[in-house]
Design a protein around this nucleic acid. Sequence first.
DNA 1: ATAATTTATATAGCTTGCTATCTAAACTTG
DNA 2: CAAGTTTAGATAGCAAGCTATATAAATTAT
Lengths: 143, 143
Amino acid sequence: MGFARENSAGYLINQLARLFARELQHHIQPLGIVTGQFPVLLALWGRDGVTQRELLAEIDVEQATLANTLIRMERDGLVKRTKHPTDARAQQIWLTQKALNVRDDAYLSANQVNQDALACLSDDERALFIKLMCKVIKNMREE
Amino acid sequence: MGFARENSAGYLINQLARLFARELQHHIQPLGIVTGQFPVLLALWGRDGVTQRELLAEIDVEQATLANTLIRMERDGLVKRTKHPTDARAQQIWLTQKALNVRDDAYLSANQVNQDALACLSDDERALFIKLMCKVIKNMREE
DNA sequence: ATAATTTATATAGCTTGCTATCTAAACTTG
DNA sequence: CAAGTTTAGATAGCAAGCTATATAAATTAT
């Protein structure tokens, strides 16, 4: 019995995730945003004015992680929060102009990173790679 | 121009990495080890008594990350460090009996997690998935 | 042999993620 | 309506990663 890193899905995925994160970081740093803010921005670019809970439903992180990310995003001038009109516990989260301004460049960056990373694959391989990842994610979520 | 999370390699890989880490965490927690220690243990189970620099050469993290991981491993009774006989700057890193004892169970855990995660794939798909990941990693390392 | 450089490791300070727990408001229910 | 429960968010505290910088020993070069 042994364990070979080069054939361990978990090991490889960890490597990949860090390589992607680093690459994206380099691309979006000039925009004044960081990787952890990306999924939040994606959701809010779709629709803002939502509560933290509604936002959470669209993002695959724990509530505490999102809460902390929002604190940093507010600090960085990416979102503003207002009291919810009817629920005193809740808040509404709004994008600032700064966050709206970087939207297109952020999309471009993310697409570029994905494209460069997968440039070594054929079209078929790329599609298959995505498909396999989705399959495994689904499987692991069900476990 | 848009951006679809479900088709973004980076997004999916981040998801996957977190799912794998969480799963492995659950499996190895009873052994008294945590995920970040795994690569270090793998290397040291192969050969211990090495310096931090030699260890670093086998592990894909930054020097500072390894240094901090070693501090926690020492705290957790997994490694001991002795002065290097001829180089006063360096140290030699040794596994404790505790670390040696969990080796087989740790291998089993990691293999189990990989197997469960990829259980939804056929043998061909599994092999291909691993191959594609290696290819992309290699590509990203070269960039 | 001294000065300059490189090497081995540590430390500071940050982000992103996690679990667990707290507070306060809003519901539910007897 | 008061008591109990659920919900919305915040907070504490940790791990694992990063970059940047510090320190001290070793090596190289003058």
